[in-house]
Every structure is written in structure tokens, then in C-alpha cells.
Simulated assay, not measured.
Amino acid sequence: MATTRRTFLGLTGAAAAAAAGITPAFARDSATLYIGTYTSAGGTGIGLASYDATSGAITATGVLTGVQEPSFLIADPSARFLYAVNEQTDGGVTAVAVDAPGKLRVLNRQSTGGSAPCHLALVADGKYLVSANYGSGDVAVHPVNADGSLAARTDLVKHVGAAPHAHQVVEDPTGQYILSVDLGTDTVYTYTIAAPGKLTETAQAKLETGAGPRHLAFHPNGRYAYVANELDSTVVPCEYADGRLTPGTPLPTAPANSPQNYPGEVIVSADGNFVYVSNRGHNSIAVFAISADGATLTRTATPSTGGDWPRHCAIDPTGTLLLVSNQRSNSITTFHRNQQTGTLTPAGSFTTPSPVCTLV
């Protein structure tokens, strides 16, 4: 992986729909954990572990080697397949079969046609995998075959603007639109997709100049989304309707006089009551209470992650455990989550090389 602004920030100092026609082979095992890593920074592939939602303890169970730079992972809802980015100069996406929970097998890899893909999503009822190429600032489309493998790329759409850096792709709650968040152009682009896997841009939403939008997460009601801005350390509540975002007032994710801070991940609790943002630099999780209608956020706490450079965070299926990937300190920390108050209480810490994503 070439050293760029994003890899310098990360390395210094140390899923949406099932593929059509597939019947689930088994229920998703909520005790299985898959770990995305940088193989150029000590990782050896996709990490495998189990976890206890009650205690917060994580136990290593193995690794799937042979997958390079799998820095972001998703699963299809059937639990039979995983998909990983290969965040390399010659970017790719890898399809992985889950023969049983924690037992993985590489199906194939396809080129994204761009560089440093860092995010992906299944869209259109699992017919396509879309990926965001950070380095080249474009979005790639790959059809998903019936066996879970990936067909050849059918589209590659460049974001319009100076120095684009596509950082996320996400399907909206209606399944009608795909949103791509671009850190370089301070823009969220909206697309539709149609056979044979072609994207059509339908809208753009501009964030403040220099904000550096990184990721967004939707409220369960589908009428609001929350955009985490990496470069100005803010989160922005946005109204959403018919593929169009309307940004509101940015809110700081870290306290005043904090060290220079770069938000990493933004997630929303399943009940729509809380937003969590990982703060790289302040090394904390910003906890925001959401108003009843989803329109406003109020920051309530910024507890330490107990590690360095929390690139990613995720809530487990029980809703009671939050997992944080601390990239620079080579640790995943866990927190008990109070579902009524949103409060986080430290639960455990697990050492593993270069964790940058947890899939639970």
C-alpha cells in the first residue's frame, strides 16, 4: 500500500442484501467476529475471533491468509459470504465463502479499476457489490454471481471535482439510491443503479469547504442521516428524502482544546436513540443523544477508547456491546452499552495486529 495522506494518518505511531436465489445455509452466529487489517502494517489477512457479549472478552480463533489489505469487510445477510476491499494501489475486492461460522474460503478477487478501495456495500437486493476507491476517487460496480463470487466490473464512475477521494458507499434505507461520500470534494454523491450494473448520478450534497466528509449513517426512520467529517472533526445531521441530503449545522465530535482530531466511523444504534463517532487523536468515542424525530444531536460523553487511533467501531447484534478497532495500539477494546442511556463502560481489551474494522 503506497504511503498517502490517509495511510500516513493510519500507520504512523505503530451489509445490505443477499445474492438473488441464495437460501441461507445457517443463521448468523453472533459470537463470531471477523477483523479487517492492514497486511502492510502487521496484519496477516482477515482475522477470526469469537466474543462473549456478556463479558466483552474476545478470543482469537485463526486468520484467513492470502487476502491483502482487507481494511473493510461486509457480510451478506445469508451469512454465507463475506466481501473485503483490497486497499492497494492496484485496488481490488475479494469474495469469501463462509463454509461455517469462522471457517472461510476465498472465492475470487476482481480489480476495482482504481486505487486504494476502502469501503464497499451490497446493493439492489444483493445483485451488485459497489466499492469506493479512495486513491483514484471513483466508484466501481461488480455483479454478484449466484455462488457468491464476483463477476467482472461493469462500471467505474469518477467523482466530479478537484482531488476526489471516495471514502464510503452506502445504500439508502429504501434501496432506491446509493450514496457515496467523498472526503476530497466535500460532497456526497447520489446514484441509482440499473442492469447491467451501471450507475447514474441523481444528486449532490455539498458539505462545508474543507470539512472532509468520511462516512454517513442513516437514522432508522430514513428521514435523517449523520455525516462524520474527518478534517474539521464534526458530525452533521442531515435531512434526507428521495436521494437528497440537506446538511444541517455541524457539531464538534471532541471537546474544546482537544488534540488534533480526525473522526473515523459513525454509527447509529438500532433503536435510533444514539449516534457514536470514533475520534482518532482524542482517542475517544463521542456519544450523541438523538432527538425523538432524529433531527438533532446532543453530545453527552466522550469516553476514552483505551487505545490509540480508533479507526472503526461497531455495535454487536445484541445491542449491548460496542467494539472499537484501535489501529495504532494493535487492540480491539470492548464496552458494555447501556441501551437506555447510551453510556459506555469499559469491558475488555484484545491484542491483534493492525485492526481497522470489526464485523459482528
Results as ranks from 00 to 15, higher is better:
residue 244 R to M: 14
residue 266 V to L: 07
residue 241 A to I: 04
residue 259 P to D: 00
residue 272 G to T: 08
residue 226 Y to Q: 00
residue 221 N to E: 01
residue 212 G to L: 11
residue 217 A to V: 10
residue 215 H to P: 01
residue 267 I to K: 12
residue 250 P to F: 08
residue 263 P to E: 02
residue 265 E to Y: 08
residue 238 C to Q: 02
residue 240 Y to D: 02
residue 224 Y to W: 15
residue 228 A to V: 14
residue 267 I to R: 13
residue 228 A to T: 09
residue 270 A to I: 08
residue 245 L to I: 05
residue 245 L to T: 01
residue 216 L to Y: 02
residue 246 T to L: 06
residue 233 S to P: 03
residue 248 G to E: 06
residue 231 L to M: 15
residue 244 R to N: 09
residue 236 V to C: 09
residue 220 P to Q: 11
residue 236 V to Y: 07
residue 271 D to A: 12
residue 222 G to F: 11
residue 215 H to K: 09
residue 271 D to C: 11
residue 227 V to L: 13
residue 240 Y to E: 06
residue 217 A to I: 07
residue 261 N to Q: 08
residue 242 D to N: 15
residue 264 G to M: 01
residue 249 T to V: 14
residue 241 A to Y: 01
residue 254 A to K: 08
residue 238 C to M: 06
residue 247 P to L: 06
residue 253 T to F: 09
residue 258 S to A: 15
residue 268 V to I: 15
residue 217 A to L: 11
residue 236 V to D: 01
residue 265 E to W: 12
residue 242 D to F: 03
residue 236 V to Q: 00
residue 247 P to S: 11
residue 217 A to M: 09
residue 257 N to S: 14
residue 267 I to W: 02
residue 255 P to Y: 10
residue 233 S to D: 13
residue 249 T to W: 05
residue 257 N to P: 07
residue 252 P to H: 12
residue 262 Y to G: 01
residue 246 T to W: 01
residue 241 A to E: 12
residue 257 N to G: 12
residue 227 V to C: 04
residue 238 C to T: 01
residue 252 P to G: 07
residue 221 N to M: 09
residue 228 A to P: 03
residue 223 R to W: 04
residue 231 L to H: 09
residue 235 V to G: 01
residue 257 N to H: 15
residue 259 P to M: 10
residue 222 G to Y: 10
residue 247 P to I: 06
residue 244 R to Q: 15
residue 220 P to S: 12
residue 236 V to M: 09
residue 270 A to C: 07
residue 240 Y to S: 03
residue 237 P to D: 01
residue 264 G to L: 05
residue 216 L to D: 00
residue 228 A to E: 03
residue 213 P to Y: 05
residue 225 A to S: 09
residue 227 V to K: 00
residue 233 S to L: 08
residue 230 E to D: 04
residue 237 P to F: 04
residue 259 P to L: 09
residue 223 R to M: 12
residue 258 S to T: 14
residue 231 L to N: 13
residue 269 S to H: 12
residue 212 G to V: 09
residue 244 R to T: 14
residue 229 N to Q: 13
residue 244 R to Y: 00
residue 243 G to T: 08
residue 266 V to C: 06
residue 219 H to T: 04
residue 246 T to K: 13
residue 212 G to Q: 10
residue 227 V to R: 00
residue 250 P to A: 12
residue 230 E to Q: 14
residue 248 G to H: 00
residue 215 H to I: 03
